[in-house]
Structures are given as C-alpha cells and as structure tokens.
Design a protein around this nucleic acid. Structure first.
Lengths: 203, 203
DNA sequence: TCGTTTGTGGTTCGATCGAACCATAACAGG
DNA sequence: CCTGTTATGGTTCGATCGAACCACAAACGA
C-alpha cells in the first residue's frame, strides 16, 4: 500500500466533522461540501472513504456507536474491584446522561439521526440495540443485587429497570435543552436509586 | 377582501404537509417544493402565507403546539366531574405518550425540530415552555393529592413529579422506535403511579 | 363602473446539492 | 527502474434548492 496513511484515523477525522455539523444544524447541514470543509479535506475524499452520502451518515454513526461503547466500558472499568451493585447500576444509568461535552454531543447526534432511524433499516439496526441491552443489563444487575440483599425484595425488577432507563432517556432531552442542569438530573436519578437499593450508598 | 378563502384553514393545510414530510424524512425533506406538492398548492402560496422557509417552519410548529394544547385540554375535560387526583395525573402523563397516530406524529415532528431548538431561539421559545409547565402541573396535583390523602405522605413530590415526566419522555422515544408497545408504556407508568398514590385506582 | 387591494399560479435566477469524472502523486512488488 | 495499485485533489454535470419576480383573477370601495 502506498502513502502510508492511517485509514481508520482518516475516517474518524471525517466522521467527527459529520458529528460537529449534525449537532449544530441537524442532518440537513451535513452536506458533502460542508463536511469536507469542516474536516479540512477535499470533497473527493469523502467519496473515497465512505462512498455516497447515505453511506457517510451510516459510517459516521457506526464510529460514534463504537466510541460510545468503548468509553462506557472504560468508565465502568475505572470503578475498580468489586463495587456494590448500587454503584454499578448508577454508573450505567449516568453513562446515558449528557454529563460532559463528549456525551452531550453524542446525544445530539443521535437526535439528529432519530427520524431516519424510523425509515432506514440500516441506520436503525446500528442504533436500536443499545437501549434494550442497557435495560436488560440493569434488570440483571438488580436481580444480582436482590440476591445480595442490596435491593428491596418487594420491587418489580423488570418494571423498575424499564422506568429507570426511561427516566434517564427523558433527562437526556431536558438537559440537552437546558431545562435542567446535569447535577439536578443526577440528583433525581439518585433519588430513585435510593428507593430501589435498601440502605446502601453508591460508593 | 376578495375571493373568500379561510386563511387559517389554508395555513393549516400547508402546516400539515410540513408535518407529514418532517415525520417521514426529517427537516431536510421539508423543502418548499416538497411542501407545495404535498399540500397540493403552488410554491408561491407558501411564500404568501408564511414568507421564508424559516418562517414556514416556525409557523408550522406554532400551529402544531396550539393543536396539542387544545387536544390535551379536550381529553382532560372529557374526564367529567371531579375525578380523583390519580386519574388526573395519569391523564396528563399519558397525554405525553404517542398512544395514537395523532400524538405519534406530533412527537415525531418535535424530534425533527429538536436540534434546531438549540440554535434558533425563536423555535425554542415555542417548544420549551410545555415540559416545564407539565412538570409543575404534576407537582401541584400531587400536592393536592397529598392533602386529600391520596398520595403517600413520605414521597418527595418535586422529585417524583420530575421523574414521572422524565419517564414519560423516555417512553416517547422507545415507543416511537417500536422498541416498546404503547400498552407496555402505559402499564409501566401505572406501576409508578400505583407507588405514588396510596390505595387508589385511577378511576 | 372603475381602480385598488388581496389571493393565486407560473416562471426565472443564482447558488448549491450529490455524484461522477479526470489527473496525478505516492508507494509496493517485480 | 518500471508497473500497477492506492490515495488524493480538482473539476464538471444535471438536478434541485430558496427566493424573487411577473401576470392575472376575484372581490370590495368609491
């Protein structure tokens, strides 16, 4: 291969330009010319690395998703040895909130893509798996927590897992729109977690 | 005035075309030509009734909002005389869910506009008021319910009101994406309401 | 009856869109 | 030192964009 250039790096550089434009003006601002200008490359390169515009949108979303999964894994691994179930569940749920610029932008990109998820199966396939997986994960963790005596025995685990995830998703919108501070959202999540977990602290 | 034509009706006819296109392909499909074709009028009419494209998007959103408010009012009024607080709160929250085609499409339009809310103050002003008002309304209703003995005295009203609204917002997404049935969402909302309201049924 | 205002359709303009095309530089294998 | 593949830039094409413009029909005031 000539001209040793890191392909993945190049694709990432272009994908980031797509994200920035999508968070600013929605998908309608993600034109090939704009992306090329934002990424500092020629329009021809977009064709070379991603092909058509639809493939560019799909590719940028796939990279975004891979990033999100890896970062979430890193953050959860940073908890160290055997944390309590309370802390793990809290960590997973808080990962869904736009608590920093990175996650905020990520959620904005998802919103920009949202309507397309309903129409284009290729995009939906990429984005629909995560929320369901998270909800099942929360349910599993709550079940383990119950066996360890950390979770109140009289709660409906499936129902609570679903509502905790739904609440986190709801906070996404209100925080993004500036109607609620990230700190408030975290406090409200903790309030619900304190109800589900009996007498434990997230630490 | 010549040629008696109902202005508001005309504007509504055009606005509905905007909604349909926005729900299908996002705002990027809402071009003047597409809207004109969808509404069955000439492109010139859009200019006459709404002016520029931005004003068209704003006007269509205003009409959508006015509709939503009126329909919500109607549905709540249909409850008849003195319903219990449980039923009222349930009605308000369920109004947020995409339970029928009308509300489903409405939420899809909001999603299509979402990213713009962050950038264009004129749009944000129209759409940001509702969620806050709903949360305050829920909190007020819960306070009244507590005075009537229908609400558990040991719950944090503000926190629960916020989380109920957030949960409803979260269900919007998952129901729209087909990850959860409307019936499941209603059942999950009822599960939380049953916790907040002591020994009452929504009837 | 005759302007004047208001509503409606059709057309045009410059800009920009996505995508294809052409040229060529950089490097690998022989 | 070639030769072909890979990587990159520049340009062009037909279509479509938003917005302005032009022409005219319909109804009211005088």
């Amino acid at each position: 291969m000539p001209r040793q250039v890191d392909h993945d790096l190049r694709r990432r550089q272009i994908a980031e330009a797509v994200w920035r434009l999508a968070t600013r003006g929605g998908l309608e601002d993600v034109t090939l010319r704009q992306v090329a200008a934002e990424a500092g490359v020629s329009a021809r390169l977009l064709q070379y690395y991603f092909g058509t515009r639809d493939q560019l949108l799909l590719g940028a979303l796939e990279i975004l998703n891979a990033d999100a999964e890896q970062r979430a894994r890193e953050r959860l691994a940073a908890f160290g040895e055997t944390p309590g179930m309370h802390a793990i569940v809290r960590g997973v749920l808080l990962e869904m909130l736009p608590l920093d610029e990175e996650r905020r932008n990520r959620h904005l990109v998802y919103v920009a893509y949202f309507v397309r998820f309903l129409v284009e199966p290729a995009l939906a396939e990429v984005a629909l798996a995560a929320p369901l997986a998270i909800e099942n994960l929360i349910a599993d963790l709550l079940t383990q927590g119950r066996e360890l005596g950390e979770v109140s025995p009289d709660i409906d685990i499936a129902a609570e897992a679903a509502f905790l995830v739904a609440g986190a998703e709801g906070f996404q919108s209100s925080v993004l729109l500036g109607q609620r501070t990230p700190e408030d959202a975290v406090a409200l999540m903790d309030h619900q977690l304190a109800r589900v977990f009996t007498g434990t602290t997230p630490g």
